[in-house]
């Protein structure tokens, strides 16, 4: 029987099945956490409404509520007490593959901003001819290239079968998190007033970028990890 609440669960409102981590032996601390499969429709298991977020709106997020939720013993994933180790493997994806969308966003921003700068005319010139515009394009590209290399390194290490290097992953997450908002801001400002409008998607990217230093472990958490590991 499971009781408790989980928060900020991606796909919460639409998931057919959830993996729920729960304390089965609290006195054992991390070693007393186990993982369970809970299917949609199980009595006592429900999802809250979609949380309206600032960005990444297409991805639905909600609370999951477990209220005297009884599941078969067979729904235990792995062995009792294995839950924490499994959750660390989940974190591996948070701090590796899930950084890739932010790299993709940088690539997209660069293309869109270059196209806009080549088309938009102000003061008798294409705005791409102003150094301030070139500066912004350069900053977007520099961030994108640095982030890409960090993310690809982690992906390459995974392909080599190496366990996640937590220091390298934290560095990558911190960089993508803390340094992505500057280029997103530049992309929005480059578009001028249109950058502030829904019709042009730069404002969406700006709002989406705000997730980077929060989701998958906040930047402060990454800094704690890094400062402990060095």
């Amino acid at each position: 029987m499971l009781n408790g609440n989980k928060m900020f669960i991606t796909n919460g409102p639409i998931a057919d099945v959830a993996v729920v981590y729960a304390k089965t032996a609290p006195e054992l601390k991390h070693a007393g956490i186990s993982a369970f499969i809970v299917e949609k429709g199980t009595p006592g298991f429900s999802a809250g409404p979609n949380i309206i977020k600032m960005g990444v709106c297409t991805s639905q997020t909600s609370e999951l509520i477990l209220n005297d939720c009884v599941i078969p013993a067979d729904n235990l994933l792995g062995k009792e007490g294995d839950g924490f180790a499994m959750s660390l493997q989940t974190v591996e994806w948070d701090r590796s593959a899930l950084l890739a969308p932010f790299v993709g966003a940088a690539t997209y921003m660069l293309k869109r901003c270059a196209a806009y700068a080549n088309a938009r005319v102000q003061f008798g010139r294409r705005i791409g001819q102003f150094q301030a515009t070139k500066n912004k394009l350069a900053n977007i590209r520099i961030f994108g290239e640095a982030a890409r290399t960090l993310v690809y390194r982690i992906a390459w290490c995974k392909d080599q079968g190496r366990p996640l290097n937590h220091l390298e992953a934290a560095v990558a997450k911190l960089f993508v998190g803390d340094w992505s908002m500057g280029p997103a801001n530049d992309a929005m400002v480059l578009h001028g007033g249109y950058g502030y409008c829904h019709e042009y998607d730069m404002e969406r990217i700006f709002r989406d970028s705000r997730l980077a230093p929060i989701g998958g472990g906040t930047s402060d958490i990454q800094k704690m990890i890094i400062s402990k590991l060095i």
Partner: peptide, 27 residues
Amino acid sequence: VIAYQQVGFKLAEMLTLYQSAQLLAYR
């Protein structure tokens, strides 16, 4: 002093810039 976040977090930011620059330069 590394136990103080003002110092530990600064070192984390330094390492992040260093490693990011390193990888980009190698690439």
